[in-house]
């Protein structure tokens, strides 16, 4: 088990008009709360349009973490920032679905690259739910 000090924070990188957060560790509740605060603060301070949370290094995603990620996406949206979650492990995705959890309000991308591509496009207009899935 990697020991993470009590003051450790997940780094948030600003790239052009985006914030990129790469989670490469097991998320404790403290880290999740800290990240939520940090992201909100950063969005407020810097002028960005997109947020990418790369979860390729996450160990598990339980109801708390998935809820927190969803919340981050919703908060960001209220502040005019679109959120994309990238690199979710297929087994974790399956576990989420089996638990009946989802990440509504957040887009998903296969990897960081497609996430950036996705955000670089114009935001989606209100589209018919059926067609957009």
């Amino acid at each position: 088990m990697t020991e993470i000090s009590d003051t450790f924070r997940i780094p948030i990188i600003k790239l052009h008009d985006k914030l990129i957060v790469s989670i490469q560790m097991a998320l404790s509740d403290r880290l999740v709360m800290q990240l939520k605060d940090d992201i909100t603060t950063r969005i407020e301070r810097v002028n960005i349009t997109g947020l990418i949370i790369d979860v390729s290094g996450i160990d598990v995603m339980d109801s708390y973490i998935s809820r927190a990620l969803r919340d981050m996406g919703l908060i960001a949206r209220l502040m005019g920032v679109r959120t994309v979650i990238s690199g979710l492990d297929p087994m974790i995705a399956m576990t989420l679905v089996e638990m009946g959890l989802d990440l509504k309000g957040v887009s998903a991308a296969l990897n960081l690259e497609t996430a950036i591509e996705l955000l670089d496009r114009k935001p989606a207009k209100t589209r018919g739910k059926g067609a957009a899935a």
Binding site: V84, I85, S86, L88, P90, A93, M94, L96, V97, E98, D102, L103, S107, A108, A109, L110, N111, T114, A115, A133
Partner: peptide, 14 residues
């Protein structure tokens, strides 16, 4: 439905 939802969580449309 589960398969489709999980695929979408990965960023793929089903």
């Amino acid at each position: 439905i589960k398969v489709i939802k999980a695929a979408e969580l990965l960023g793929s449309t089903c």
